[in-house]
């Protein structure tokens, strides 16, 4: 958090080797540790949730089933019947991001979705998949989309680069959105938490005033819980939309 009286809000995003000499040798930082934790949590949740496989589900099983059906409906409603093929990918993406966003809210944890390297890698995965699917389904007709129908041919030198850039901007905006939301949320946490500590050092009036930023931080936690699930949802639904465009026509 705050080092002395100065506020260094970006310190929390720095990567350090963990697990002693072993981590040092492998350059193993907090980010992959929490990625593994996120995967383990999601897999354990599904495994232990579905272990009873009861006709009348218990609480954990019901939760696992709700998650499954939610993402499945999202995929099938958006993409269409072909969406079933992409459902496992979208499910993994959604819960990996969701687990990452929520793990980052715990004290002493690390938000791996706050790094553009991570979000951009995921966005590129989606982008490359959608290009491969487009080329496979539509063949060379795919390239015809870069010329808007009905537009005059004389404008093509201007329109085609804009359309291509608009297409190429997809992974960029997809990754920037998730990364920026996570960074902004955690920077705000840090700023208000630093205010609490700084004000608390000012004696009695400081103690009274410090309640303000503390209350704001509690409200921010509520907002971040919403943002965490919303960003995972937006990432998943945009993946579905891009894949729908790839499989249609």
């Amino acid at each position: 958090m705050a080092g002395g009286s100065s506020i260094n809000v970006l310190e929390q995003f720095e990567l350090h080797p963990v697990l002693g000499g072993f981590g040092e040798a492998l350059r193993f930082s907090q980010a992959p540790v929490f990625m593994i934790v996120a995967c383990v949590i999601v897999l354990a949740f599904l495994h232990y949730g579905m272990k009873p496989a009861a006709v009348v589900p218990g609480r954990l099983q019901a939760a696992a089933e709700v998650c499954y059906e939610f993402v499945r409906n999202l995929a099938v409603d958006t993409i269409g019947p072909e969406g079933v093929a992409f459902f496992p990918f979208i499910f993994a993406l959604f819960f990996f991001i969701l687990a990452g966003n929520y793990l980052g809210l715990l004290p002493y944890s690390y938000t791996f979705t706050s790094h553009i390297a991570v979000t951009f890698a995921m966005a590129m995965m989606v982008f490359i998949l959608s290009v491969i699917v487009s080329l496979k389904v539509q063949g060379f007709k795919f390239f015809a989309h870069f010329m808007p129908p009905g537009a005059p041919v004389a404008l093509a030198p201007l329109l085609v680069p804009i359309e291509i850039l608009s297409f190429l901007s997809r992974p960029v905006s997809l990754s920037i959105r998730l990364f920026a939301n996570m960074v902004a949320g955690h920077v705000m946490f840090d700023i208000f938490a630093s205010f609490v500590i700084m004000l608390a050092g000012l004696g009695f009036f400081g103690d009274v005033l410090a309640v303000g930023p503390l209350v704001i931080n509690i409200a921010l936690m509520g907002l971040e819980l919403l943002v965490g699930v919303l960003q995972a949802y937006v990432f998943a639904i945009l993946t579905c939309i891009y894949l729908r465009e790839a499989v249609s026509h």
Binding site: L165, S166, L168, S169, R170, V172, S173, L174, I176, R177, A180, N181, L226, L230, Q231, Y233, V234, I237, L238
Partner: peptide, 23 residues
């Protein structure tokens, strides 16, 4: 939820185009 996700999308769509172009 849709409105909130829309607000989150619109800004980054615009920024995404610009960043992609500059890159």
């Amino acid at each position: 939820k849709n409105l909130l996700s829309l607000a989150a999308r619109a800004g980054s769509e615009m920024l995404g185009g610009l960043v992609a172009g500059v890159l």
